[in-house]
């Protein structure tokens, strides 16, 4: 039964973080986010970017999605094969993900090079669209400059994926 142990360590381990709820996400440059969310909506694909532009050199297409759990929502950036693997309504488990500024100013959650995403279910999960952790303005904690703290709400919900109704 070595496998059971291995997986348990894999989920709790990796970056060493335990599972968090989306409302507890704080921008950081570390691959330590373990969480489970439902993919609420998906935007159109963005072509590969960066040097080479045409998709060579390991550059992959991306796709912005709205992810949420019962506590909050966040923009999740699907990367490469993830763009096809996940559809709205899929429940995804993220291991060793990263919540950080991507390409300058957009704050997104993603698996990153070291993280892993797995479809673990479908449909049967409750979620909220407010607050959206990607629509908050963050600032350095004056008491502990290594930490970020919430400074202001830019928008109560995603400005990319508007709530229905």
């Amino acid at each position: 039964m070595a496998h059971k142990g291995a997986d348990a360590a894999g989920f709790g381990g990796g970056g060493g973080g335990r599972a968090v709820q989306l409302k507890d996400l704080v921008p950081a440059a570390t691959n330590t986010v373990n969480t489970t969310f439902i993919v609420v909506d998906k935007a159109a694909r963005a072509p590969p970017h960066g040097r080479g532009g045409g998709g060579g050199g390991g550059r992959e297409e991306t796709c912005l999605s709205l992810a949420a759990d019962e506590t909050a929502a966040v923009h999740f950036l699907l990367w490469g094969a993830e763009c096809d693997a996940f559809e709205p309504g899929d429940i995804v488990r993220l291991t060793d993900g990263i919540f950080s500024y991507h390409r300058g100013n957009s704050l997104v959650l993603r698996a990153g090079r070291r993280g892993r995403t797995e479809k673990v279910g479908e449909f049967t999960m409750l979620f909220v669209e407010t607050p959206n952790m990607s629509e908050l303005r963050w600032a350095r904690d004056p008491g502990d400059p290594r930490r970020m703290v919430q400074e202001a709400v830019v928008s109560p919900h995603s400005q990319v994926f508007k709530p229905l109704q």
């Binding site: 039964m1 059971k4 997986d7 797995e118």
Partner: peptide, 20 residues
């Protein structure tokens, strides 16, 4: 399955009990 489904060696996969 595929890269984004739990592998049979992961307890969250329905195949896991069979595999074990």
């Amino acid at each position: 399955g595929g890269d984004h489904h739990p592998s049979p060696t992961s307890p969250s996969s329905p195949e896991y009990p069979f595999f074990s």
